[in-house]
Amino acid sequence: MHIMCCLKPVPKPGTIKVDPQTHTLKREGSELELNPYDRYALELALSLAEDTKGTVTAVSMGPPNAKPILIEAYACGADRVVLLSDRAFAGADTLATSYVLARAATKLGPFDLIICGKVSIDGETAQVGPEIAAWLGWPSVIWVKEARVTNKTLELVRLTDSHLERLKAKLPLVITTENEINDPRPPSLKRLLTTLEKDPVEILTAQDLQAEPQRIGLSGSPTQVLDVFHPEYQSEQKFLSGPVEKLVDELVSVLKERGLIS
């Protein structure tokens, strides 16, 4: 089975920079790391590929400084690692992002399965997976806990709000993984060393993907951030400071006042 796994570069918490004009993330200026939830997606991809003697192609859309993420994926066992990188991709919302990833699936495929993480910790939309499926005209299943291949179909267990569902899905298919479903393997030192001799990361631009210019980046993004604001909270406030014993006493008397303790 040939699998594409989507790995999102996200800013390290605390290094987030936002473009003051478009209010979109400036990924070039931030220190990037792998979206933590995508580790489960990669592990599932690698183990399904092992079971079926298939391949894993790890793909990220991001600026050049996202490369170390793909090197790590290579060291973990991905067969092919591809960075989709072009200034024209900047400012993409989920529709424009999923378009580029879907173009990559067509260009690098054919694939039987595309695996995404549950959600990214920066965008927090959980949209990109099902949207890739929509661009490709494929079915999709989200929040997958288990997946097993049985002749040309995938048997899945997915989580809904209140149920676990076992289902059978025809391929090709897009899935997103539930968190903490497996123990992601560490990078192999041996594979890591080979990357010092030969850089495994392939880089593809908008042109390489034959992406339509009006579908990518800011211009391909129907959602726009108008502005950002700090919510205001007006409340009458009691500010307490001083010796800790006194502060504890004051809190205890508030709790008593409100009948929360007797």
């Binding site: 959980a126 949209q127 099902p130 959602t223």
Partner: peptide, 23 residues
């Protein structure tokens, strides 16, 4: 933004090429 809503809305947005704001 339930499990069903999160599975469904982006499929619809992607198919119709629409913007979708999450949560």
């Amino acid at each position: 933004a339930t499990a069903m809503g999160q599975a469904l809305a982006p499929r619809v947005a992607g198919t119709l090429r629409l913007g979708l704001t999450a949560h």
